[in-house]
């Protein structure tokens, strides 16, 4: 019986071609990543040379402090993107995270001003943040609503509740914890900066060191494969939304400490959070969102604002440069993907 179907005869030429192709692809990807990182580095180098005091320890710690809130929020967003997949319209996204932080801050500051202790107030803020996260999880996982839409609706609920609670006013707050966060320091590094460092260490360990984190990537990268491997996809996705709510609550404590109050308008942070989480992918070898990459892009955004400030450039440029960078990074990425897309 003769063979009736042509399978390729796998000659040596085919082998080398296949590996050659993937090597070429890896090279292109590398060039893209290095190019984007080089652009970041060039901007930093410019600041180092021309911005007075940019590299001073004081200034750098200041930047880390300023980045703490954005960083913690961006971790929440990153976890949602990891677990839900990075397809921006269908995949994981938490548009409610900044509004959630605003709500938590309002709850925290209001309870403090009513005379509740730090412990109770922090606990309440965390409970509220996680409850909002759970609501997102219910909508996305339980009811199957597109994350973009579900979290959009929850954004409105959270923002409205914040406004109702504070009547759109500044709620001043002071407590031992807040005092410590503002003025405490250890090894010459302020408590606020430590907060970011410790939180980063914990979240990087969980997402990148444990089997749980590994499985989370599988759930987001290929849900079918995760299911076939016996993982409960709904559980992991739900977890990311609740974690995102938790991050919002932690960030709320930090923001109240920085401003000694809860203030309206926290929703404006959303775009920066999104930008940080998305930009972070260029720092990853696999072009996936990572906590380390997110931290780097948060610091980068912080340094960008700081450098402009030191150079007396209007801070109004920051948004624009951030936007242009997103476009640059994504355009180069899609260019590299396009050249490999012939497969």
């Amino acid at each position: 019986m003769s063979a009736t179907t042509l399978h390729t005869e796998a000659g040596a030429s085919d082998e080398t071609r296949a590996t050659g192709k993937s090597a070429g692809r890896r090279f292109a990807t590398l060039v893209v990543r290095l190019g984007a990182i080089a652009a970041f580095a060039a901007i930093m180098a410019y600041f180092v040379v021309f911005a007075p005091g940019f590299t001073s320890t004081f200034n750098l710690i200041n930047v880390v402090e300023q980045s703490a809130i954005l960083g913690v929020l961006a971790y929440g967003m990153t976890s949602v993107i990891i677990g839900g997949g990075s397809d921006v319209t269908e995949g994981g996204i938490d548009l409610s995270i900044a509004a959630n932080m605003g709500l938590c801050a309002a709850v925290y500051a209001t309870l403090l001003s009513m005379g509740c202790g730090d412990f109770l107030s922090v606990l309440a803020a965390i409970a509220v943040g996680m409850a909002v996260g759970a609501l997102n999880a219910l909508a996305v996982v339980g009811l199957g609503i597109l994350p973009l839409l579900a979290t959009l609706a929850v954004l409105n609920v959270a923002a409205g509740m914040e406004l109702t609670l504070t009547q759109n006013t500044v709620v001043g707050a002071s407590s031992p914890l807040l005092a410590f966060l503002v003025s405490g320091s250890f090894l010459g590094i302020s408590a606020l900066a430590w907060a970011l460092i410790v939180f980063s260490a914990i979240i990087i360990a969980i997402i990148h060191g444990t089997a749980f984190g590994l499985r989370l990537y599988a759930v987001g990268g290929h849900p079918e494969a995760a299911r076939a491997a016996g993982l409960s996809v709904p559980f992991y996705v739900s977890f990311t939304y609740v974690l995102s709510g938790f991050c919002a609550a932690v960030a709320s404590v930090l923001t109240v400490s920085r401003l000694s109050a809860s203030t309206p308008g926290s929703g404006e942070l959303l775009l920066s959070v999104l930008a940080a989480a998305l930009l972070g992918t260029v720092f990853s070898r696999r072009f996936v969102p990572t906590m380390g990459g997110t931290l780097l892009s948060v610091l980068f955004i912080g340094l960008l604002a700081n450098g402009f400030q030191l150079l007396n450039v209007s801070s109004y440029w920051v948004n624009g440069v951030q936007g242009a960078l997103i476009l640059l990074v994504v355009a180069i990425t899609s260019f590299a993907r396009g050249s490999e897309g012939s497969r």
Binding site: L214, Y217, A218, G221, H222, E224, A225, A229
Partner: peptide, 17 residues
């Protein structure tokens, strides 16, 4: 059914790390 962004080791042992 493999996660495209996983390494070979991660893919082989997913769920049984």
């Amino acid at each position: 059914l493999l996660v495209p962004t996983a390494t070979v080791g991660e893919a082989v042992f997913l769920g049984h790390e």
